[in-house]
């Protein structure tokens, strides 16, 4: 996961911007990144060196500072002919999105590897770290949630007290922050199942649940990208490690991902580990 040197954008954005002219406005403005709300959803603008969001792009720090200093939430943003224009009180700032390098953040298909998963170093490391991840997760646990999380790892749920819909309903929007822990767990879990093509029905259930239950706009944007097959650049990197035999490298990556967000990284990894369990058990 080396630092990216130049301006990049997720290939998912090309699905967003279908019309030549679209108007949005600044949704949230942080010290190091911002989100713009367009009618079709959010786009995230971070800085070079940060992991690329599936619904985002990365610009130079200098350019970001200018945006940060001049923008206010609510300021209008125009997408026109491949570029973004920020209508700030001080200036109209152009971000030349069309010349950014496009990065493929689509989730690869690793179905052929699922049979070897159980014996892989990758899986073993996750089995070992599952307990510590469960302890460190940001989700406040009660008996029902604990039971739900346990069920997530089980492919055979017919006799279980909670249905998929129940568990998804419990998790969506649960917890605090811009991406609540429940959402992160769900995203990590779904991602793992999607990697091994074990998520078709599950995705539909998640999509249906999102129609019913609201979560934060940023989480919704992550779900929206995920359900269309796109994930954050840093988590996508996990897919490349499935066949990795260097245990340390895998552990290092997990440690690094845990540092993402407050508990977001841990929560997503926890969900991912549950998903791997599911895939492995299903395979078995």
């Amino acid at each position: 996961m080396s630092a990216i040197k130049r301006e990049t954008k997720s290939n998912f954005l090309s699905l967003y911007f279908k019309n030549s002219l679209q108007m949005g406005s600044i949704h949230t403005l942080f010290e190091n990144s911002l989100n713009v709300q367009f009618p079709f959803g959010l786009i995230h603008i971070g800085q070079i060196g940060m992991p690329l969001s599936p619904f985002g792009c990365l610009i130079s720090t200098k350019e970001y500072r200018q945006l940060h200093d001049q923008c206010q939430p609510g300021d209008l943003v125009r997408y026109k002919q491949g570029n973004l224009y920020f209508y700030t009180q001080k200036n109209v700032i152009k971000v030349e999105l069309d010349i950014f390098e496009e990065v493929d953040l689509s989730i690869p298909e690793l179905k052929p590897l699922s049979s070897k998963l159980e014996k892989s170093v990758f899986y073993q490391v996750f089995v070992e770290t599952l307990f510590s991840l469960s302890v460190e997760t940001g989700l406040p646990l009660n008996d029902t949630i604990k039971e739900g999380l346990k069920i997530l790892a089980e492919p055979n749920r017919n006799e279980k007290r909670l249905s998929d819909e129940d568990i998804i309903g419990i998790l969506i929007g649960r917890g605090i922050g811009l991406t609540p822990s429940g959402d992160d767990i769900l995203i990590g879990y779904t991602f793992a199942r999607m990697l091994f093509q074990e998520a078709d029905e599950w995705k539909e259930k998640v999509a249906a649940a999102l129609q019913e239950k609201k979560t934060t706009a940023i989480s919704e944007a992550y779900f929206s990208a995920l359900l269309k097959g796109y994930i954050n650049e840093n988590f996508l990197y996990l897919a490349q490690l499935v066949t990795e035999t260097d245990r340390k490298k895998i552990l290092d990556t997990i440690q690094r991902l845990k540092r993402f967000g407050h508990t977001s990284g841990t929560d997503t990894l926890y969900g991912f580990a549950l998903g791997l369990h599911y895939v492995q058990k299903k395979e078995r």
């Binding site: 108007m23 209008l76 125009r78 209508y87």
Partner: peptide, 10 residues
């Protein structure tokens, strides 16, 4: 002069 404060836009 005598003007409302309007958001910048296109």
């Amino acid at each position: 002069a005598f003007t409302n404060v309007v958001k910048p836009g296109n």
